[in-house]
Amino acid sequence: MSTSATTATLTATAAIGLDEAAAFIWAEGELLDRLAYKDWLPLWAGGHYVIPIDRDASDPVDALNIAYDDATMREARVKRLLSGFSMSSAPPARTVRSASRFVVEDSAPGALTVRCAQILVEYKYGRTRTLAADVTYRLVRTDAGLRMAGKSILLLNSDEDLFGIGYLL
């Protein structure tokens, strides 16, 4: 179990434990539910924010995705969502999300790939809707703490009809 006191003394190559990863993912989810997107952007260290459509695509770069954002597109997306000029995001649906059923996919010094189940419920116009997904995080340790080097959100119904989503998954 890492505490904030011990985390500060770790070197950048120390292994990332599942409990530490889960704490990061819960904190990230809370930021997104609160629309604290400006605090979310610095949690990235390169990589892509991907919401695929095709469940079997070998590389999302050559497939059509719901989102395929590098750092520039993430910044542009956050600017758009917070601008007040996007009618689907001003205001967006309210969201509550939880993450659980964590599975380590790959572990290396200073890096961890972890997959989890995310259940998100949104509310707008008197209507609640659920979006369930397998979310895969590529986490890396930096001097400033854990950072995302990739996040892929595979919606349960990624290849079926969705609806306009005015917030970040």
């Binding site: 719901i66 989102a67 758009r80 689907s88 995001s89 969705l162 306009g164 989503i165």
Partner: peptide, 20 residues
């Protein structure tokens, strides 16, 4: 593909506002 994703789809920069 990237140009299409930029505007279109459930989380594009255009479609969700059209749908709304």
């Amino acid at each position: 593909l990237r140009l299409h994703e930029h505007f279109q789809g459930p989380m594009g920069f255009g479609t969700p506002d059209d749908a709304e």
